[in-house]
Design a protein around this nucleic acid. Structure first.
Length: 483
RNA sequence: CGAGGUGUGGCUCAGUUUGGUAGAGCGCUACGUUCGGGACGUAGAAGCCGCAGGUUCGAAUCCUGUCACCUCGACCA
Protein backbone atom coordinates (compact mmCIF):
# COMPACT_ATOMS: atom_id res chain seq x y z
CA UNK A 1 0.00 0.00 0.00
CA UNK A 2 1.20 3.49 -0.82
CA UNK A 3 2.24 5.26 2.32
CA UNK A 4 4.29 8.20 1.25
CA UNK A 5 2.40 11.32 2.17
CA UNK A 6 4.80 14.12 1.50
CA UNK A 7 2.19 15.72 -0.69
CA UNK A 8 1.67 19.41 -0.41
CA UNK A 9 -1.11 21.58 -1.72
CA UNK A 10 -0.23 24.79 -3.47
CA UNK A 11 -1.10 27.81 -1.38
CA UNK A 12 -3.80 30.12 -2.68
CA UNK A 13 -2.95 33.71 -3.51
CA UNK A 14 -4.13 36.06 -0.77
CA UNK A 15 -7.54 37.51 -1.51
CA UNK A 16 -6.72 40.81 0.13
CA UNK A 17 -3.58 41.42 -1.84
CA UNK A 18 -4.67 40.45 -5.33
CA UNK A 19 -8.34 39.63 -5.74
CA UNK A 20 -8.22 38.89 -9.47
CA UNK A 21 -5.34 36.47 -9.05
CA UNK A 22 -7.01 34.89 -6.04
CA UNK A 23 -10.12 34.29 -8.14
CA UNK A 24 -8.37 32.67 -11.09
CA UNK A 25 -6.31 30.65 -8.62
CA UNK A 26 -9.28 29.35 -6.73
CA UNK A 27 -11.33 28.19 -9.72
CA UNK A 28 -8.42 25.96 -10.70
CA UNK A 29 -7.17 24.83 -7.31
CA UNK A 30 -10.63 23.99 -5.97
CA UNK A 31 -10.96 21.88 -9.14
CA UNK A 32 -13.97 23.75 -10.51
CA UNK A 33 -12.63 24.27 -14.01
CA UNK A 34 -9.75 23.72 -16.33
CA UNK A 35 -8.85 26.16 -19.07
CA UNK A 36 -9.71 24.80 -22.47
CA UNK A 37 -7.71 24.87 -25.66
CA UNK A 38 -10.81 26.48 -27.13
CA UNK A 39 -10.11 30.13 -26.54
CA UNK A 40 -12.40 31.83 -24.07
CA UNK A 41 -14.20 28.63 -23.10
CA UNK A 42 -13.86 26.54 -19.98
CA UNK A 43 -13.88 22.88 -19.09
CA UNK A 44 -16.11 22.46 -16.06
CA UNK A 45 -14.76 19.69 -13.89
CA UNK A 46 -16.89 17.25 -11.88
CA UNK A 47 -16.68 19.27 -8.68
CA UNK A 48 -17.70 22.48 -10.41
CA UNK A 49 -20.43 20.77 -12.39
CA UNK A 50 -21.86 19.17 -9.24
CA UNK A 51 -22.46 22.67 -7.86
CA UNK A 52 -24.31 23.56 -11.06
CA UNK A 53 -26.39 20.38 -10.83
CA UNK A 54 -27.45 21.30 -7.31
CA UNK A 55 -28.43 24.76 -8.53
CA UNK A 56 -30.43 23.14 -11.33
CA UNK A 57 -32.22 20.78 -8.97
CA UNK A 58 -33.32 23.50 -6.58
CA UNK A 59 -34.38 25.79 -9.41
CA UNK A 60 -36.33 23.07 -11.19
CA UNK A 61 -38.24 22.47 -7.98
CA UNK A 62 -39.01 26.18 -7.71
CA UNK A 63 -40.02 26.40 -11.38
CA UNK A 64 -42.41 23.49 -10.96
CA UNK A 65 -44.09 25.33 -8.11
CA UNK A 66 -44.58 28.34 -10.37
CA UNK A 67 -46.00 26.14 -13.13
CA UNK A 68 -43.13 26.18 -15.62
CA UNK A 69 -42.26 23.30 -17.93
CA UNK A 70 -38.84 22.42 -19.31
CA UNK A 71 -38.39 22.32 -23.08
CA UNK A 72 -35.53 22.34 -25.56
CA UNK A 73 -34.99 24.53 -28.63
CA UNK A 74 -32.37 24.14 -31.38
CA UNK A 75 -28.94 25.68 -30.89
CA UNK A 76 -28.92 27.25 -34.39
CA UNK A 77 -30.92 30.29 -35.41
CA UNK A 78 -31.36 31.16 -39.11
CA UNK A 79 -30.22 34.70 -39.80
CA UNK A 80 -33.64 35.73 -41.07
CA UNK A 81 -35.24 34.70 -37.80
CA UNK A 82 -32.75 36.63 -35.72
CA UNK A 83 -33.36 39.71 -37.89
CA UNK A 84 -37.07 39.91 -37.17
CA UNK A 85 -36.98 42.05 -34.04
CA UNK A 86 -34.87 45.12 -34.76
CA UNK A 87 -33.64 46.11 -31.28
CA UNK A 88 -32.92 42.50 -30.44
CA UNK A 89 -30.68 41.87 -33.43
CA UNK A 90 -28.87 45.17 -32.98
CA UNK A 91 -28.07 44.26 -29.40
CA UNK A 92 -26.77 40.79 -30.15
CA UNK A 93 -25.31 40.98 -33.65
CA UNK A 94 -21.87 42.19 -32.52
CA UNK A 95 -21.31 39.09 -30.43
CA UNK A 96 -22.84 36.14 -32.26
CA UNK A 97 -20.93 33.26 -33.82
CA UNK A 98 -22.00 32.22 -37.31
CA UNK A 99 -22.16 28.83 -38.98
CA UNK A 100 -21.52 29.33 -42.68
CA UNK A 101 -20.81 25.82 -43.92
CA UNK A 102 -22.40 22.40 -43.57
CA UNK A 103 -19.67 19.92 -44.31
CA UNK A 104 -17.88 21.37 -47.30
CA UNK A 105 -20.93 23.13 -48.73
CA UNK A 106 -21.65 26.76 -48.14
CA UNK A 107 -25.07 27.33 -46.54
CA UNK A 108 -27.59 29.38 -48.46
CA UNK A 109 -28.55 31.10 -45.24
CA UNK A 110 -26.03 31.27 -42.45
CA UNK A 111 -27.01 30.13 -38.96
CA UNK A 112 -26.09 31.85 -35.74
CA UNK A 113 -25.24 29.84 -32.66
CA UNK A 114 -27.87 30.96 -30.15
CA UNK A 115 -26.79 33.85 -27.94
CA UNK A 116 -30.28 33.58 -26.36
CA UNK A 117 -33.44 31.92 -27.63
CA UNK A 118 -36.23 34.55 -27.76
CA UNK A 119 -36.55 34.26 -31.52
CA UNK A 120 -36.89 30.47 -31.48
CA UNK A 121 -39.50 30.59 -28.75
CA UNK A 122 -41.38 33.22 -30.76
CA UNK A 123 -41.45 31.02 -33.81
CA UNK A 124 -42.75 28.19 -31.67
CA UNK A 125 -45.44 30.37 -30.06
CA UNK A 126 -46.64 31.45 -33.50
CA UNK A 127 -47.38 27.83 -34.27
CA UNK A 128 -49.11 26.87 -31.05
CA UNK A 129 -50.87 30.00 -29.79
CA UNK A 130 -54.21 30.74 -31.46
CA UNK A 131 -56.72 31.29 -28.70
CA UNK A 132 -56.78 32.90 -25.25
CA UNK A 133 -57.32 29.33 -24.08
CA UNK A 134 -53.74 28.54 -25.21
CA UNK A 135 -52.34 31.13 -22.82
CA UNK A 136 -50.26 31.45 -20.83
CA UNK A 137 -47.37 29.22 -21.88
CA UNK A 138 -44.72 28.98 -19.20
CA UNK A 139 -41.49 27.45 -20.48
CA UNK A 140 -37.95 27.04 -19.31
CA UNK A 141 -34.87 25.75 -21.07
CA UNK A 142 -31.54 24.52 -19.69
CA UNK A 143 -28.83 24.89 -22.30
CA UNK A 144 -25.63 26.62 -23.22
CA UNK A 145 -25.41 29.78 -25.29
CA UNK A 146 -22.56 31.40 -27.17
CA UNK A 147 -21.52 35.03 -27.13
CA UNK A 148 -18.26 35.91 -28.82
CA UNK A 149 -16.73 37.87 -25.95
CA UNK A 150 -13.46 39.70 -26.40
CA UNK A 151 -12.15 39.25 -22.91
CA UNK A 152 -13.21 36.28 -20.85
CA UNK A 153 -13.14 35.04 -17.28
CA UNK A 154 -14.17 31.64 -15.92
CA UNK A 155 -17.83 31.61 -14.82
CA UNK A 156 -18.18 35.39 -15.11
CA UNK A 157 -17.73 35.72 -18.83
CA UNK A 158 -16.89 32.91 -21.20
CA UNK A 159 -17.74 32.50 -24.85
CA UNK A 160 -19.95 29.52 -24.16
CA UNK A 161 -21.80 29.36 -20.88
CA UNK A 162 -24.48 27.20 -19.26
CA UNK A 163 -27.71 28.82 -18.16
CA UNK A 164 -31.44 28.52 -17.87
CA UNK A 165 -33.68 30.79 -19.86
CA UNK A 166 -37.36 31.04 -19.01
CA UNK A 167 -39.75 32.20 -21.72
CA UNK A 168 -43.41 32.92 -21.14
CA UNK A 169 -46.28 34.31 -23.16
CA UNK A 170 -49.44 35.82 -21.74
CA UNK A 171 -52.77 37.24 -22.85
CA UNK A 172 -52.37 40.58 -21.14
CA UNK A 173 -49.63 43.03 -20.29
CA UNK A 174 -50.56 42.81 -16.65
CA UNK A 175 -50.13 39.03 -16.58
CA UNK A 176 -46.74 39.33 -18.24
CA UNK A 177 -45.55 42.07 -15.89
CA UNK A 178 -46.66 40.00 -12.91
CA UNK A 179 -44.70 37.06 -14.31
CA UNK A 180 -41.60 39.22 -14.77
CA UNK A 181 -41.82 40.28 -11.13
CA UNK A 182 -42.66 36.79 -9.88
CA UNK A 183 -39.56 35.29 -11.47
CA UNK A 184 -37.31 38.06 -10.23
CA UNK A 185 -38.59 37.24 -6.75
CA UNK A 186 -37.88 33.56 -7.33
CA UNK A 187 -34.30 34.46 -8.25
CA UNK A 188 -33.91 36.72 -5.24
CA UNK A 189 -35.27 34.04 -2.93
CA UNK A 190 -32.97 31.46 -4.48
CA UNK A 191 -29.88 33.66 -4.06
CA UNK A 192 -30.65 34.67 -0.50
CA UNK A 193 -32.00 31.38 0.86
CA UNK A 194 -29.85 28.82 -0.93
CA UNK A 195 -26.73 30.74 -1.92
CA UNK A 196 -26.70 32.98 1.20
CA UNK A 197 -26.04 35.86 -1.18
CA UNK A 198 -27.91 39.10 -0.39
CA UNK A 199 -29.22 40.86 -3.51
CA UNK A 200 -30.70 44.23 -4.41
CA UNK A 201 -33.90 43.92 -6.40
CA UNK A 202 -34.64 46.61 -8.93
CA UNK A 203 -34.77 47.69 -12.54
CA UNK A 204 -32.16 48.49 -15.13
CA UNK A 205 -32.05 51.98 -16.56
CA UNK A 206 -33.20 52.56 -20.16
CA UNK A 207 -29.67 52.40 -21.51
CA UNK A 208 -28.87 49.20 -19.66
CA UNK A 209 -31.91 47.07 -20.45
CA UNK A 210 -32.01 43.90 -22.54
CA UNK A 211 -32.09 44.24 -26.32
CA UNK A 212 -35.75 44.20 -27.30
CA UNK A 213 -37.21 44.56 -23.79
CA UNK A 214 -39.69 47.14 -22.55
CA UNK A 215 -38.15 46.84 -19.11
CA UNK A 216 -35.45 44.75 -17.47
CA UNK A 217 -35.65 43.78 -13.81
CA UNK A 218 -32.48 42.62 -12.09
CA UNK A 219 -30.87 41.40 -8.91
CA UNK A 220 -27.47 42.81 -8.07
CA UNK A 221 -25.00 41.44 -5.54
CA UNK A 222 -21.84 42.97 -4.14
CA UNK A 223 -18.65 40.93 -4.32
CA UNK A 224 -15.80 40.88 -1.82
CA UNK A 225 -13.67 43.23 -3.90
CA UNK A 226 -16.44 45.83 -3.99
CA UNK A 227 -17.55 45.15 -7.54
CA UNK A 228 -21.18 44.54 -8.45
CA UNK A 229 -22.39 41.33 -10.04
CA UNK A 230 -25.60 41.10 -12.02
CA UNK A 231 -26.83 37.79 -10.62
CA UNK A 232 -30.01 37.46 -12.64
CA UNK A 233 -32.36 39.35 -14.94
CA UNK A 234 -36.05 39.18 -15.79
CA UNK A 235 -37.41 40.98 -18.83
CA UNK A 236 -40.82 42.26 -19.80
CA UNK A 237 -41.15 42.45 -23.58
CA UNK A 238 -44.59 43.94 -24.03
CA UNK A 239 -45.96 42.80 -27.38
CA UNK A 240 -42.95 43.91 -29.41
CA UNK A 241 -41.73 40.42 -30.23
CA UNK A 242 -45.28 39.23 -30.84
CA UNK A 243 -45.79 41.95 -33.42
CA UNK A 244 -42.46 41.29 -35.09
CA UNK A 245 -43.18 37.56 -35.27
CA UNK A 246 -46.89 37.99 -36.01
CA UNK A 247 -48.07 36.02 -33.01
CA UNK A 248 -51.81 36.55 -32.59
CA UNK A 249 -54.60 35.00 -30.60
CA UNK A 250 -58.37 35.36 -30.54
CA UNK A 251 -59.34 36.80 -27.18
CA UNK A 252 -62.59 36.32 -25.22
CA UNK A 253 -64.04 39.36 -26.94
CA UNK A 254 -63.48 37.63 -30.30
CA UNK A 255 -60.80 40.12 -31.37
CA UNK A 256 -57.32 39.25 -32.61
CA UNK A 257 -54.64 40.46 -30.22
CA UNK A 258 -50.88 40.26 -29.74
CA UNK A 259 -49.85 38.43 -26.60
CA UNK A 260 -47.27 39.79 -24.12
CA UNK A 261 -44.01 38.03 -23.35
CA UNK A 262 -41.28 37.69 -20.74
CA UNK A 263 -37.94 36.02 -20.45
CA UNK A 264 -35.58 35.57 -17.53
CA UNK A 265 -32.27 33.83 -16.94
CA UNK A 266 -29.47 32.96 -14.60
CA UNK A 267 -26.21 31.33 -15.57
CA UNK A 268 -23.16 29.57 -14.21
CA UNK A 269 -22.11 33.11 -13.35
CA UNK A 270 -23.89 32.35 -10.07
CA UNK A 271 -20.98 30.06 -9.25
CA UNK A 272 -18.62 32.98 -9.77
CA UNK A 273 -20.89 34.94 -7.45
CA UNK A 274 -20.68 32.28 -4.76
CA UNK A 275 -16.90 32.24 -4.98
CA UNK A 276 -16.56 36.00 -4.73
CA UNK A 277 -19.22 36.49 -2.07
CA UNK A 278 -18.13 33.85 0.41
CA UNK A 279 -14.55 32.82 -0.42
CA UNK A 280 -11.61 33.68 1.83
CA UNK A 281 -7.84 33.28 2.04
CA UNK A 282 -8.16 29.55 2.65
CA UNK A 283 -10.21 29.03 -0.47
CA UNK A 284 -13.78 28.42 -1.46
CA UNK A 285 -16.70 28.57 0.98
CA UNK A 286 -19.82 26.86 -0.30
CA UNK A 287 -23.37 27.31 0.94
CA UNK A 288 -24.63 23.89 2.16
CA UNK A 289 -27.58 23.85 -0.27
CA UNK A 290 -25.34 23.64 -3.33
CA UNK A 291 -22.16 22.08 -1.89
CA UNK A 292 -21.40 18.77 -3.67
CA UNK A 293 -20.13 17.45 -0.34
CA UNK A 294 -21.82 18.95 2.70
CA UNK A 295 -19.95 17.05 5.39
CA UNK A 296 -16.54 15.42 5.22
CA UNK A 297 -15.46 13.01 7.93
CA UNK A 298 -11.75 12.85 8.65
CA UNK A 299 -10.59 9.90 10.74
CA UNK A 300 -7.57 10.69 12.90
CA UNK A 301 -4.97 7.96 13.35
CA UNK A 302 -7.20 5.72 11.32
CA UNK A 303 -4.87 2.73 11.66
CA UNK A 304 -5.80 2.53 15.32
CA UNK A 305 -8.52 0.17 16.33
CA UNK A 306 -12.12 1.30 15.99
CA UNK A 307 -11.46 4.66 14.33
CA UNK A 308 -12.54 3.81 10.80
CA UNK A 309 -15.48 1.83 12.13
CA UNK A 310 -16.70 4.86 14.09
CA UNK A 311 -16.15 7.15 11.11
CA UNK A 312 -18.26 4.86 8.96
CA UNK A 313 -20.97 4.72 11.63
CA UNK A 314 -21.23 8.51 11.53
CA UNK A 315 -21.22 8.38 7.75
CA UNK A 316 -24.13 5.95 7.63
CA UNK A 317 -26.15 7.93 10.16
CA UNK A 318 -25.74 11.16 8.18
CA UNK A 319 -26.41 9.43 4.90
CA UNK A 320 -29.75 8.19 6.17
CA UNK A 321 -30.66 11.81 6.94
CA UNK A 322 -30.04 12.68 3.28
CA UNK A 323 -26.81 14.59 3.93
CA UNK A 324 -24.21 14.60 1.13
CA UNK A 325 -21.38 13.15 3.20
CA UNK A 326 -18.09 11.39 2.61
CA UNK A 327 -15.35 9.79 4.63
CA UNK A 328 -11.81 10.54 3.55
CA UNK A 329 -9.96 7.42 4.62
CA UNK A 330 -7.02 7.82 2.25
CA UNK A 331 -4.02 6.68 4.17
CA UNK A 332 -1.47 8.61 2.14
CA UNK A 333 -2.58 12.03 3.35
CA UNK A 334 -2.18 13.40 6.85
CA UNK A 335 -5.21 14.86 8.65
CA UNK A 336 -3.72 18.35 8.43
CA UNK A 337 -3.39 18.01 4.68
CA UNK A 338 -6.99 16.90 4.40
CA UNK A 339 -8.20 19.82 6.51
CA UNK A 340 -6.57 22.22 4.08
CA UNK A 341 -7.84 20.35 1.05
CA UNK A 342 -11.49 20.50 2.12
CA UNK A 343 -11.13 24.10 3.20
CA UNK A 344 -9.86 24.95 -0.25
CA UNK A 345 -12.84 23.16 -1.77
CA UNK A 346 -15.28 24.89 0.54
CA UNK A 347 -16.91 21.88 2.23
CA UNK A 348 -19.27 23.46 4.82
CA UNK A 349 -18.79 21.00 7.69
CA UNK A 350 -15.86 18.84 8.74
CA UNK A 351 -16.09 16.13 11.36
CA UNK A 352 -12.91 14.88 13.02
CA UNK A 353 -13.03 11.55 14.80
CA UNK A 354 -10.02 10.00 16.55
CA UNK A 355 -9.14 7.60 19.38
CA UNK A 356 -9.48 10.26 22.07
CA UNK A 357 -12.94 11.21 20.83
CA UNK A 358 -14.10 7.65 20.79
CA UNK A 359 -12.95 7.29 24.39
CA UNK A 360 -15.08 10.33 25.32
CA UNK A 361 -18.02 9.51 23.02
CA UNK A 362 -17.54 12.76 21.10
CA UNK A 363 -16.32 14.22 17.84
CA UNK A 364 -15.01 17.56 16.60
CA UNK A 365 -17.27 19.56 14.30
CA UNK A 366 -15.66 22.40 12.37
CA UNK A 367 -17.59 24.90 10.25
CA UNK A 368 -15.90 26.27 7.18
CA UNK A 369 -17.33 29.78 6.86
CA UNK A 370 -16.19 30.99 10.29
CA UNK A 371 -13.51 28.44 11.13
CA UNK A 372 -15.13 27.47 14.43
CA UNK A 373 -14.43 24.08 16.01
CA UNK A 374 -16.56 22.48 18.69
CA UNK A 375 -16.56 19.23 20.62
CA UNK A 376 -19.93 17.54 20.30
CA UNK A 377 -21.20 14.43 22.01
CA UNK A 378 -21.86 11.68 19.51
CA UNK A 379 -25.41 11.54 20.87
CA UNK A 380 -26.01 15.13 19.71
CA UNK A 381 -24.00 14.89 16.50
CA UNK A 382 -26.91 14.38 14.09
CA UNK A 383 -28.99 17.23 15.47
CA UNK A 384 -25.99 19.54 15.52
CA UNK A 385 -25.01 18.81 11.92
CA UNK A 386 -28.57 19.12 10.69
CA UNK A 387 -29.01 22.45 12.45
CA UNK A 388 -25.71 23.71 11.06
CA UNK A 389 -26.50 22.75 7.47
CA UNK A 390 -30.09 23.94 7.46
CA UNK A 391 -30.01 27.00 9.68
CA UNK A 392 -26.83 28.20 11.32
CA UNK A 393 -24.47 28.10 8.33
CA UNK A 394 -26.78 29.61 5.68
CA UNK A 395 -27.85 32.31 8.14
CA UNK A 396 -24.29 32.97 9.29
CA UNK A 397 -22.99 33.18 5.74
CA UNK A 398 -25.83 35.47 4.71
CA UNK A 399 -25.28 37.78 7.67
CA UNK A 400 -21.56 37.94 6.99
CA UNK A 401 -22.12 38.78 3.32
CA UNK A 402 -24.80 41.33 4.20
CA UNK A 403 -22.50 42.97 6.72
CA UNK A 404 -19.83 43.25 4.06
CA UNK A 405 -22.30 44.77 1.62
CA UNK A 406 -23.54 47.32 4.16
CA UNK A 407 -19.98 48.23 5.01
CA UNK A 408 -19.31 48.92 1.34
CA UNK A 409 -22.51 50.77 0.48
CA UNK A 410 -22.13 54.53 0.52
CA UNK A 411 -24.87 57.12 0.35
CA UNK A 412 -23.61 60.15 -1.58
CA UNK A 413 -25.09 63.42 -2.78
CA UNK A 414 -22.27 64.84 -4.91
CA UNK A 415 -19.45 63.74 -7.20
CA UNK A 416 -16.95 64.75 -4.54
CA UNK A 417 -18.68 62.57 -1.97
CA UNK A 418 -18.69 59.64 -4.39
CA UNK A 419 -15.02 59.94 -5.22
CA UNK A 420 -14.12 60.42 -1.57
CA UNK A 421 -16.16 57.41 -0.42
CA UNK A 422 -14.65 55.15 -3.07
CA UNK A 423 -11.16 56.33 -2.35
CA UNK A 424 -11.39 56.03 1.43
CA UNK A 425 -13.41 52.83 1.75
CA UNK A 426 -12.67 51.03 -1.49
CA UNK A 427 -15.03 50.02 -4.28
CA UNK A 428 -18.63 49.29 -3.41
CA UNK A 429 -22.22 50.23 -4.06
CA UNK A 430 -22.90 53.93 -4.23
CA UNK A 431 -26.46 54.99 -3.47
CA UNK A 432 -27.19 58.39 -4.92
CA UNK A 433 -30.22 60.43 -5.97
CA UNK A 434 -30.79 60.53 -9.71
CA UNK A 435 -33.21 62.53 -11.82
CA UNK A 436 -33.73 59.74 -14.33
CA UNK A 437 -32.03 61.29 -17.36
CA UNK A 438 -29.59 59.36 -19.48
CA UNK A 439 -27.40 62.42 -19.74
CA UNK A 440 -26.78 62.49 -15.99
CA UNK A 441 -26.20 58.74 -16.02
CA UNK A 442 -23.38 59.21 -18.53
CA UNK A 443 -21.92 62.15 -16.65
CA UNK A 444 -21.72 60.18 -13.40
CA UNK A 445 -19.81 57.45 -15.19
CA UNK A 446 -17.43 59.97 -16.69
CA UNK A 447 -16.78 61.83 -13.43
CA UNK A 448 -16.50 58.88 -11.04
CA UNK A 449 -15.92 55.74 -13.11
CA UNK A 450 -18.99 53.94 -11.78
CA UNK A 451 -22.05 53.03 -13.80
CA UNK A 452 -25.70 52.59 -12.89
CA UNK A 453 -26.43 49.11 -11.54
CA UNK A 454 -30.12 49.22 -10.73
CA UNK A 455 -33.04 51.35 -9.63
CA UNK A 456 -34.04 49.55 -6.42
CA UNK A 457 -37.68 48.80 -5.67
CA UNK A 458 -37.02 49.79 -2.07
CA UNK A 459 -37.29 53.58 -2.05
CA UNK A 460 -37.99 55.93 0.82
CA UNK A 461 -39.45 58.62 -1.51
CA UNK A 462 -37.78 61.47 0.33
CA UNK A 463 -37.21 64.75 -1.49
CA UNK A 464 -33.66 64.94 -2.83
CA UNK A 465 -31.60 66.53 -5.57
CA UNK A 466 -29.98 64.64 -8.47
CA UNK A 467 -26.32 63.97 -7.75
CA UNK A 468 -25.48 65.30 -11.20
CA UNK A 469 -27.82 68.07 -12.37
CA UNK A 470 -29.34 69.05 -9.02
CA UNK A 471 -32.94 68.66 -10.18
CA UNK A 472 -35.54 67.62 -7.60
CA UNK A 473 -36.09 63.86 -7.40
CA UNK A 474 -37.27 61.29 -4.90
CA UNK A 475 -35.41 58.44 -6.57
CA UNK A 476 -32.20 56.86 -5.30
CA UNK A 477 -30.32 54.39 -7.45
CA UNK A 478 -27.35 52.08 -7.06
CA UNK A 479 -24.08 52.65 -8.88
CA UNK A 480 -20.93 50.59 -8.94
CA UNK A 481 -18.18 48.96 -10.90
CA UNK A 482 -19.55 45.94 -12.71
CA UNK A 483 -18.27 42.49 -13.55
C1' C B 1 -10.32 45.86 -30.12
C1' G B 2 -6.47 49.64 -27.58
C1' A B 3 -2.22 49.74 -23.57
C1' G B 4 1.12 46.86 -20.65
C1' G B 5 3.08 42.04 -19.01
C1' U B 6 4.31 36.71 -19.09
C1' G B 7 5.54 31.88 -21.74
C1' U B 8 11.60 27.09 -18.88
C1' G B 9 9.63 19.13 -15.87
C1' G B 10 2.70 18.36 -13.23
C1' C B 11 2.83 23.45 -10.20
C1' U B 12 5.56 28.09 -8.64
C1' C B 13 9.67 30.15 -10.45
C1' A B 14 15.53 31.12 -11.03
C1' G B 15 18.76 31.37 -15.23
C1' U B 16 18.22 35.94 -20.39
C1' U B 17 21.57 42.11 -19.06
C1' U B 18 27.34 39.74 -20.46
C1' G B 19 25.47 33.17 -25.77
C1' G B 20 29.13 27.63 -23.85
C1' U B 21 24.54 22.61 -24.30
C1' A B 22 19.15 22.60 -17.91
C1' G B 23 18.46 24.40 -12.22
C1' A B 24 15.59 24.94 -7.30
C1' G B 25 11.32 24.17 -4.17
C1' C B 26 6.94 21.63 -4.19
C1' G B 27 4.33 17.59 -6.64
C1' C B 28 5.05 12.41 -8.80
C1' U B 29 7.05 6.76 -8.12
C1' A B 30 9.03 2.88 -4.50
C1' C B 31 10.19 1.33 0.57
C1' G B 32 10.25 2.39 5.82
C1' U B 33 8.81 5.40 10.12
C1' U B 34 4.42 8.53 11.01
C1' C B 35 -0.96 10.38 11.66
C1' G B 36 -5.46 15.84 16.84
C1' G B 37 -3.69 21.77 11.48
C1' G B 38 -0.30 21.44 5.14
C1' A B 39 4.92 14.73 8.48
C1' C B 40 10.04 12.72 7.73
C1' G B 41 14.13 9.63 5.75
C1' U B 42 16.39 7.00 1.64
C1' A B 43 16.33 5.92 -3.52
C1' G B 44 14.27 7.21 -8.35
C1' A B 45 11.56 9.14 -12.87
C1' A B 46 10.46 13.42 -15.41
C1' G B 47 11.99 19.42 -19.50
C1' C B 48 13.91 18.92 -27.70
C1' C B 49 13.28 26.22 -22.44
C1' G B 50 5.40 28.40 -26.41
C1' C B 51 6.07 27.77 -31.89
C1' A B 52 8.69 29.02 -36.71
C1' G B 53 12.64 31.22 -39.04
C1' G B 54 17.46 33.87 -38.71
C1' U B 55 22.59 35.30 -36.66
C1' U B 56 26.68 32.10 -34.61
C1' C B 57 31.61 27.04 -34.18
C1' G B 58 27.66 27.08 -30.43
C1' A B 59 21.06 30.02 -28.66
C1' A B 60 16.52 29.23 -23.00
C1' U B 61 19.77 33.66 -23.64
C1' C B 62 20.65 37.95 -29.47
C1' C B 63 17.25 39.34 -34.01
C1' U B 64 12.48 38.74 -36.87
C1' G B 65 7.77 36.73 -37.12
C1' U B 66 3.84 34.12 -34.89
C1' C B 67 0.65 31.84 -31.15
C1' A B 68 -1.21 31.42 -26.25
C1' C B 69 -2.27 33.26 -21.50
C1' C B 70 -2.67 37.30 -17.65
C1' U B 71 -3.73 42.48 -15.98
C1' C B 72 -5.92 47.30 -17.06
C1' G B 73 -9.43 49.90 -20.36
C1' A B 74 -13.95 49.80 -24.14
C1' C B 75 -18.43 45.95 -24.60
C1' C B 76 -21.61 42.16 -22.36
C1' A B 77 -25.21 36.99 -18.21
Amino acid sequence: MAQSNSKKLDAITSMDEDFAKWYTDIVKKAELIEYSSVKGCMVIRPYGYAIWENIQNIMNTMFKETGHENVYMPMFIPESLLQKEKDHVEGFAPEVAWVTHGGSEKLEERLCVRPTSETLFCEHYKNIVHSYRDLPKLYNQWCSVVRWEKTTRPFLRSREFLWQEGHTIHATAQDAIEETERMLNVYALFCEKYLAMPVIKGMKTESDKFAGAVSTYCIEALMHDGKALQAGTSHYFGDGFAKAFEIEFADKDNKLKNPHQTSWGVSTRLIGGIIMTHGDNNGLVLPPAVAPTQVVIIPIAQHKEGVLEKANEIYEALKVLGVRVKVDDRNEFSPGWKFSEYEMKGVPVRIEIGPKDIENNQCVIATRYNGEKQFVSLDDMLDTVKDLLENKIPQGMFDKALENREKHTYYCESFDEINKALEENGDGFVRAPWCGSEECEDKVKEATGISSRCIPFMQDKMARKCVCCGKDTDKVIYWGKAY
